[in-house]
Deep mutational scan, measured.
Amino acid sequence: EVTIKANLIFANGSTQTAEFKGTFEKATSEAYAYADTLKKDNGEYTVDVADKGYTLNAKFAG
């Protein structure tokens, strides 16, 4: 089991951190699915991958 950390950075400057656990593939998929649920209210996002894929920095356009 691994933990994927998602740093969510919103256009207004606020941030949120979420963690997803499971296999690498499952946890990564859940992190992206969570970011997708936030698109409606926060706009499209881009992701910078860090820490060999164990940290995802998602920046929302607003």
Results as ranks from 00 to 15, higher is better:
Thr28Ala: 06
Val2Met: 04
Lys5Ala: 05
Ala6His: 01
Thr17Asp: 05
Lys26Tyr: 11
Ala50Asn: 08
Lys52His: 15
Thr37Ile: 10
Tyr32Arg: 07
Leu8Asn: 02
Lys21Gly: 06
Ala11Tyr: 08
Thr37Asn: 12
Asn7Tyr: 11
Ser29Gly: 10
Ala58Ile: 15
Val49Gly: 04
Phe10Ile: 03
Ala27His: 01
Glu25Lys: 08
Lys26Glu: 13
Ala61Asn: 12
Asn12Lys: 04
Phe20Gly: 02
Ala61Cys: 12
Val47Trp: 09
Glu19Asp: 08
Thr37Ala: 14
Glu30Ile: 05
Gly43Glu: 03
Gly43Phe: 01
Ala31Phe: 15
Ser29Asp: 10
Thr15Pro: 04
Tyr45Arg: 03
Phe10Met: 07
Tyr54Thr: 06
Gly13Thr: 06
Phe20Glu: 03
Ala58Asn: 03
Asp41Phe: 12
Thr17His: 12
Lys39Cys: 08
Lys5Leu: 10
Ala11Ser: 10
Lys39His: 04
Lys59Arg: 14
Tyr54Asp: 04
Val2Glu: 05
Gly62Met: 06
Glu30Phe: 06
Leu56Ala: 04
Tyr32Phe: 11
Ile4Lys: 00
Tyr32Asn: 03
Asp41Tyr: 12
Ala6Pro: 00
Gly53Pro: 00
Phe60Val: 01
Gly43Ala: 02
Ile9Trp: 09
Thr55Arg: 02
Tyr32Leu: 14
Ala33Arg: 11
Lys52Phe: 15
Asn7Pro: 00
Ala27Lys: 00
Ala50Arg: 12
Lys26Arg: 12
Tyr54Trp: 07
Tyr32Met: 10
Ala11His: 09
Asn12Phe: 04
Phe24Ser: 03
Ala6Gln: 04
Ala33His: 09
Thr37Lys: 13
Asn7Glu: 05
Tyr34Trp: 15
Thr37Ser: 15
Glu1His: 12
Asn7Val: 15
Lys26Thr: 12
Asp41Asn: 11
Gly22Val: 02
Tyr32Gly: 02
Tyr54His: 11
Ala50Glu: 13
Glu19Lys: 09
Gln16Tyr: 12
Tyr32His: 06
Val2Ala: 07
Leu8Ala: 05
Glu19Ala: 08
Phe24Asn: 00
Gly53Ser: 04
Thr55Trp: 05
Asp51Glu: 07
Phe24Ile: 08
Asn12Pro: 03
Lys59Ile: 14
Gln16Ala: 12
Asn57His: 08
Glu25Phe: 07
Ala31Glu: 03
Thr17Gln: 11
Tyr34Gly: 02
Phe24Ala: 05
Ser29Lys: 15
Tyr34Leu: 08
Asp41Ser: 12
Tyr45Phe: 09
Thr28Cys: 12
Asn42Ile: 06
Ala33Ser: 09
Phe24Asp: 02
Asp41Ala: 13
Ala58Cys: 15
Leu56Gln: 03
Asn7Met: 09
Thr37Gly: 13
Phe10Leu: 10
Glu44Arg: 07
Leu56Gly: 04
Phe24Met: 10
Ile4Arg: 02
Phe20Gln: 02
Lys40Phe: 10
Ala35Trp: 14
Thr37Cys: 14
Asn12Gln: 05
Thr37His: 10
Val2Tyr: 05
Glu25Asn: 09
Val47Pro: 03
Val49His: 07
Ala61Gln: 14
Ser29Phe: 13
Thr55Val: 10
Asp51Pro: 00
Gln16Val: 14
Gly13Pro: 00
Lys21Met: 10
Ala61Met: 14
Lys52Trp: 13
Glu25Val: 09
